[in-house]
Nucleic acid binder design. Structure first.
Lengths: 159, 159
DNA sequence: GTTGATATGTTATAGAATTACAATTATCAA
DNA sequence: TTGATAATTGTAATTCTATAACATATCAAC
C-alpha cells in the first residue's frame, strides 16, 4: 500500500479503507453518501485507475441503475467537490482520492505508456509558481498539477 | 510587457515580437509556418487570452478560410506541439506562448473571475512533486500546472 | 405530517475533439 | 526537371465529453 501508487499493494484493504474513510467523512459533515454515490466510488476504488464518466455510466447501466449521463456526472461531481475523488484533466477521467477528507493539493503522475496514475502531493504556494503569484498579486485558491511521463514498468519495457 | 501578464503592456510590440520569434524558430527547425498556422497564432496573440478552438474556427470561417473543426485543431496542434502555444486544460482553450522556442515548463495563473490567464514558470523536478517522482522511479517528461484563483483586479472588485 | 431542501430520472442539447478519406502542395533526390 | 515521397489542407461524418431543463421522488427539520 503505497501513496505513490506504481507498486503492488493490498488492493482489497485499500478499497475497504477508502470506503470507510469517506463514509466517516460524510457522517461528520452531514453529507448524504447515497447508494449511487457509494457505488461510483466503489467502481473508482476497484478500478484503481482513472475512469471516464461514460465508462462508469456503462457499468451502472449494466447493473440496471440509471443510464443517462447525469447519473454518472452527478455522483462524480459529489465525489470531486467533496475531495473524495479527483478529475484528471489530461485524461478526462476520474480517480478515487488516496487521502479523502484530508485537505491537500493533489499532484498526479500520469504514465503515457499505460495510463496509470499515481497521486502525490504538491505545494503550489512554494517554488516558482508561488513566487510568481505573490509577485503579481494573484491569489491561488486551487491548483491542478499533472505530470506526464513514464512509470517504472513502462520505462523498463521501453528499454 | 510583463511575463506575469495581469498588467497593461505594449500589445502591438508583443504581437510582432511573438510572430517574429516563431518565424525564426520555424526557419531554424525546418518547420512550415504556413499561412493558416500563422493566422491562428496571430489570433491568439491578438486576443492575448485563452481562446477556444471553435472560437478561432468561427473567425477563420468568417475570413473565408476552411470551416471545419480540423482546420482549427490542426493549426493549434502544430503550435502546441512545437511550443508556440499552450492548451489550458481547465478552459478547453489555447493561448499563445510568451516564450516561444525556449525550453520551459509553463505554469498558468487562471482568474476564475475574468478568465484572464498569465503564464509563469515552474520546475516540476523540484519540490514535493519532483521528490515523489524520484522516489517512485517515475520519469517526468512534461507537466501541466494550472492554478485557479483571483487576479488583482477581480480581488479588488470582489471586495 | 408539512414543508423546504436535496437527490434522482429522463429527454434533449451543447460543446470539444477525432476519424477517415480525398485533394493539394511542398521537399528532395535522381 | 521530373518523379516519388512526405506534409499539409479540405470536407463530411462521427465520437466523446458535459450540461441544461424539467419532472419526480426522497430526506430532514420543524
Amino acid at each position: 500500500m503505497d501513496a505513490i501508487g506504481f507498486e503492488t499493494h493490498d488492493h482489497k484493504g485499500c478499497m475497504r479503507a477508502g470506503l470507510e474513510r469517506v463514509e466517516r467523512a460524510c457522517a461528520e459533515r452531514g453529507l448524504q453518501f447515497t447508494p449511487g454515490r457509494r457505488r461510483v466510488l466503489e467502481l473508482l476504488l476497484e478500478g484503481h485507475r482513472a475512469m471516464g464518466a461514460y465508462e462508469i455510466l456503462d457499468i451502472l447501466r449494466e447493473e440496471g441503475a440509471g443510464s443517462q449521463p447525469p447519473v454518472a456526472y452527478r455522483a462524480l461531481d459529489f465525489l470531486v467537490s467533496n475531495g473524495f475523488a479527483h478529475k484528471i484533466q489530461r485524461l478526462n477521467a476520474f480517480i478515487a482520492c488516496m487521502h479523502p477528507g484530508e485537505d491537500h493539493t493533489p499532484a498526479f503522475l500520469i504514465c503515457r505508456g499505460c495510463d496509470a496514475v499515481a497521486e502525490a502531493h504538491a505545494d503550489p504556494a512554494s517554488g516558482l509558481l508561488g513566487r510568481a503569484a505573490r509577485d503579481s498579486g494573484f491569489t491561488i485558491e486551487q491548483a491542478v498539477i499533472e505530470a506526464v511521463g513514464l512509470c517504472p514498468a513502462c520505462t523498463e519495457a521501453a528499454a
